[in-house]
Amino acid sequence: MPPYSHHTEAELVALLKSKDQQAFSYLYDNYGAALYGVAMKMLNKEEAAKDLLQEVFIKIWRNIASYDPSRGRLYTWMLNIARNAAIDVLRSSGFNQDKKISGIEQNVYNDNSALSTSQKTDHVGLKQIVEGLKEEYRLIIDLAYFKGFTQEEIARELNIPVGTVKTRSRNALLQLKSIMK
């Protein structure tokens, strides 16, 4: 089990606001792997993912004072920082965009579950998600959530009407939710 249970989010936030190295260490050990995994998933390149992880931690450090717990959980906040930063990288002209979506299946068999920072008590592994999620639903989630595509861009990428993107994204999340239960 991750050491997350040692601190509640509120305690962690207080610790982070003190800005000492111990707080960073705790944050990195508990969220580093999740945020790095997201960075790898989105950018698909180790060098870029390392740079991104650093940028994300710097942003967390700079902005922790303005984090407002009433507006969402800390993890959501950090994940959004990471996703937005990665989307910025993906959209930057210099980034050599690899058109194919990162092969999630490659990761499935590297069992990383022990490293996961999941805050859920009943942890669901990647393998279960990939096997439980219909391919076309996984594609929609990956393009929208992990590539920052708009509905129109997804429609173009998959060559389906925008209306289909809407129905599919609803069904995709319903299915994901049922897997996670």
Partner: peptide
């Protein structure tokens, strides 16, 4: 509820970052 499902998906992607990155990032901070 949806958010948590997506975050659990993100969690499942976790990969241990390369060794040494932690120190580099702390220096950068």
């Amino acid at each position: 509820e949806y958010r948590r499902s997506l975050e659990a998906y993100a969690d499942a992607l976790a990969i241990t970052p390369p060794a040494g990155l932690k120190d580099q990032i702390w220096s950068a901070i």
